[in-house]
Design a protein around this nucleic acid. Sequence first.
DNA 1: CGTCCACAGGAATGACGGGCGG
DNA 2: CCGCCCGTCATTCCTGTGGACG
Length: 416
Amino acid sequence: MDNTSILNDIFERFVSNNKIFKDREVLRHDYLPEKLPHREEQIIRLGQSVAPVLKGARCSNIFIYGKTGTGKTAVTKYVLNHLELKAKEINAPVSFCYVNCRLAGTEYRVLANLCYALHLTVPFTGLSVGEVFDRFRKGLDCLKTIFIVALDEVDALVKSRSDILLYELTRINETLSNSKVSIIGISNDLRLKEFLDPRVLSSLSEEEIVFRPYDASELKNILYERARLAFHDNALTDGALSLCAALAAAEHGDARRALDLLRVAGEVAERKGASVVAEDHVREAERLIEHNRVVEALANLTLHSKLVILSVFHLVKANGYKAVTGDIYEVYNELCKELAITPLTQRRVSTLINELDALGLLNAQVVSMGRYGRTKRIRLEVTRTLIKEAFSNDLRLGQLVDYEPKCLEKNSYSRD
DNA sequence: CGTCCACAGGAATGACGGGCGG
DNA sequence: CCGCCCGTCATTCCTGTGGACG
């Protein structure tokens, strides 16, 4: 069979095999379903909390926390959407803005997003944060409205920057005469409270709503509701659905993960030309998701971070399964020489290692070796195959996977 | 029980490109 | 065009430290 007919065959099978999906969009995590099973309590509480704005009163600031995939974002959007409808219906001056702080990245961009919600145009950059905040305040006051600010993943902003934006926002009402602001803070990390200024904390968490993780049977219900919309009748076995729920439940009850598993399992089944999604497809989906996550993370690293990964890889290969900062830096220096680029300082490499640890590509642990100092002991969390695959776009990097560092040649002395 | 290793990791500072307003 | 401010990445300098060794 020549290439054309192979390709034709693939396309033909794809087109003719619509036995699996009815509507796969339903399984994406930005899809907002009409029903949110097992979140009735949170919907009611949030609804009660924001309801006063319909009568022109500012509502309490609300602090929402729970782990990823527990429905925080969905519930918030759900309630706010309904609030907006009701406000339009009775002509109440209410508006809101949803911002994902992690995606926005900086205080400036969070503020810029708030301005866009008020139809204020601010430049992408160039102004001072204070200036943008001022424009926001003035623009808001002119609108004579109650403005609800929903800050999702606010923990990411606070940890990487600071809580001064939150502080300013909680105090903004003092300087507004015609408008009012309420804040809904959403955090994945319960420990966020420890990072916050006590003043911010007390005013932000006038009310708190906790989202517990879903258990396996709750996840099963959620998946079932979505699967009815996403798959054709009888295209999904009960075993596959249960397995998705069980795997996600084992991993802190993450509904997003469960939905990902289900969607990818469906795609696997589709690609194989199967007419039914079975448990094997779910297991393969699990592998596929992890594989893609890691390769994508590796491929998107900066050159220096990639070199650090390679250095750890070579050390691990040579002396057992752990490496320490000093040795990594030595190998890293050699790799830089090989590519004729100037190496970064050890201080910088140390923070790169920490970043790679946060990404789950390395595992770094500070240990004391007593008389022999204090360092980080680093394990590699990815395989050679994955590194090869991720670095294959760059010829020079690909070659460095098989390179034998000179500083590791003679003394293969190993540390425990 | 103090010493001292081999770093950890905070703070201050700088270089640089993007993008503004005037 | 200039002067200014931003965010990002990096360097430099620094103080802190767990615990085996003597």
